[in-house]
Design a protein around this nucleic acid. Structure first.
Length: 560
RNA sequence: GCGCCUGUAGCUCAGUUGGAUAGAGCAUCGGCCUCCGAAGCCGAGGGUCGGAGGUUCGAAUCCUCUCAGGCGCACCA
């Protein structure tokens, strides 16, 4: 309905000026009594035209040609124009929804533009914590959202398999392995201490026996490191899949080195004039694009800094020809944004072709007490544990009911206690409930009817009920109708803002309208025509719930 | 010291990119299953939007200052 209103408004001429389609703001009024949709456009226009807002609003209203779909158009407050649609129009929109489904719910704002989203990218040196889970839930939901909005999305995981981290893992496993072989060996400073390190050592011994017991780490480091990190990577992947998160592409850091991408990237920047040597090191002039200081990419000792492969990595992303890049990082990396955007600009791309979304940390509580989350200490709660405790759907929903940049506290005890009354079930329950309404309707339809029943004898869940009489809708039903018709607007704004959590809230609101309605009115009644109308509404609610849940990556169960 | 994020109901959080009278879920209290699913419904209480100025038709939202918490400020990854 927003689309149609926008079209109508864009055709109005005020003082020979035609407002551009994009400049027209259309809002969902907060409270009732301000129309079904409203626009503050007169207030903005009034300033330009130097006329009173109310007068401008009148001019706009007078310029509207096609008024049949409106029941009422009011000018209110300082100059809002409030639109009330006719029941017939709203119902015809619901019919379109039932008929066109996804096509009705979504709008192609992406126009096939290609976006790459890189997220999680957890080091393969240990299990994922809740912060990774938050990033995973967000990245997956965002890519679903943007896909629905008409973008071509690629999901990528960057594997840090080249640096000191995986070496540290290898060293830790090696130390444990030696100990298992009965050889005294010091555990590395700052090594990884989790139980999984011992598990890896044991698996290593199972596979290779005492083969490495008398060797130095340097002699066998590659084998040990590869063995360890590949196992960890496989575990990460399994956890992510069980969490319902899948990637299209896995980019290895090592591969960037092996294929000469790192050297190429530095050469490229050098040609563009952003590389210089000083104090025996090689620097990238990131200050040219607003960074605090220039950054070293090759150290005095000839080693690359971590930043070098990151440059190569992002250069490769650009080469792949994406229209927009999105990186989802933990908030503790926010200091890298300026230098990464400097890279993008140095390579000739506009600054905002890379958008970095920060996911704030998740602090974990257990019965009100903070849990230390250090890998060193070896005690931390993993995404896997939480998932196993309260379920993947609940966990995802939990993350997606928060803005990504809000600091999130999760009390694991509370989460467990609430798992059976979690908001996710509230939404899923509405979906399942509608399903059982249709089962009931199906049974009723199969019963031998004595007289004039017009219930559709077909399996009603599979076929949209296009033939219903919207005149029969009561006030509550009309409110649900409008709520459903707001969904496409919401989806669009969520996609533009890159904020999937808006969908989560919408779904709770929609379910929050459906459940009371269900309690108050019977859907399947003696009155066949009324039943058809109500079933149509239920079907529409279900279509929207299913669509929203799908974007969030949460199951829409038929039964619970 | 500098930078980024966050301060909204007892708790956890939304607030449509500056819109109209600030919302939800938990928690608390009181009710509802012969009736399409009680993972549900109905009702009640609860607020100086951290604080102070400013911008304008209009501010929880934008600007300045300030207080509190978190996180960053490497030739570590």
């Amino acid at each position: 309905m927003e689309r149609i209103l926008r079209e109508i408004l864009s055709k109005t001429r005020i003082n020979d000026q035609q407002p551009s389609t994009d400049s027209i703001e259309i809002e969902i009024p907060k409270g009732e009594g301000h129309g079904d949709l409203s626009t503050p456009m007169a207030m903005g226009l009034a300033r330009q035209l130097k006329k009173p807002p109310k007068k401008t609003a009148e001019d706009i209203v007078n310029a509207i040609e096609n008024k049949e779909i409106f029941d009422k158009i009011e000018i209110a407050g300082p100059g809002f124009i409030n639109f009330v649609f006719t029941r017939a129009f709203l119902c015809s929109e619901i019919k379109s929804l039932l008929k066109e489904r996804e096509a009705f719910l979504t709008e192609d704002i992406g126009k096939g533009k290609r976006i790459q989203i890189e997220f999680v990218s957890a080091n393969p040196t240990g299990p994922m914590h809740l912060g990774h889970g938050r990033g995973a839930a967000l990245g997956a939901a965002l890519s679903n959202l943007l896909t629905e909005a008409g973008y071509k999305v690629e999901k990528e995981f960057y594997i840090n398999d080249a640096g000191g981290q995986v070496r540290q893992l290898g060293l830790s496993v090696f130390a444990k392995y030696k100990q298992l072989c009965g050889v005294d060996y010091p555990f590395p400073e700052g090594g990884y201490r989790g139980d999984y390190v011992e598990d890896l050592a044991r698996e290593l011994k199972d596979k290779y026996g005492d083969e490495f017991a008398r060797k130095d780490f340097d002699e066998v480091s590659q084998t040990i490191i590869d063995f360890s990190y590949l196992k960890m990577l496989a575990a990460l992947r399994k956890d992510l899949e069980d969490f319902g998160v899948f990637f299209d592409s896995w980019q290895s850091e090592r591969e960037l080195y092996a294929q000469g991408e790192v050297v190429k990237a530095i050469d490229d920047l050098r040609e563009r004039g952003y590389i210089y040597e000083e104090d025996g090191a090689t620097w990238f002039r990131s200050t040219a694009f607003g960074d605090d200081k220039d950054r070293v990419i090759v150290k005095k000792d000839g080693e690359y800094t971590y930043f070098a492969p990151d440059i190569a990595y992002h250069r490769k992303k650009i080469e792949k020809g994406f229209d927009e890049l999105i990186d989802i990082w933990g908030a503790d990396h926010h200091g890298y944004i300026p230098r990464m955007q400097a890279v993008i600009q140095a390579l000739g791309c506009p600054r905002d072709s890379l958008r970095v979304l920060l996911v704030q940390m998740v602090s974990l509580l257990k019965g009100g007490r903070p849990v230390q989350m250090s890998k060193r200490a070896g005690e931390f709660i993993t995404l896997r544990e939480v998932m196993d405790d309260i379920g993947a759907d609940t966990t995802k929903f939990l993350f997606l009911t928060r803005r990504p940049d809000s600091h999130l506290e999760v009390d694991i005890e509370v989460a467990k206690a609430q798992s059976s009354e979690n908001p996710v079930y509230y939404v899923q329950y509405a979906h399942a409930r509608i399903n059982s309404i249709f089962e009931k309707a199906g049974q009723e339809a199969e019963k031998p009817q004595d007289s004039n029943s017009k219930l559709n004898p077909l399996p009603v869940t599979r076929y949209p009920l296009l033939d219903f009489n919207g005149e029969l809708f009561n006030e509550e039903e009309m409110r649900i109708v409008k709520k459903l018709l707001y969904y496409p607007m919401l989806l669009k704004s969520a996609a533009l803002a890159h904020e999937p959590h808006r969908i989560t809230f919408y779904l709770q609101e929609l379910a929050g309208m459906f459940h009371p309605y269900y309690h108050k009115y019977k859907v399947v009644t003696e009155d066949a025509e009324l039943s058809r109308a109500r079933l149509a509404l239920c079907s529409a609610v279900q279509v929207v719930l299913r669509h929203g849940l799908k974007i969030l990556g949460v199951e829409a169960p038929e039964r619970m």
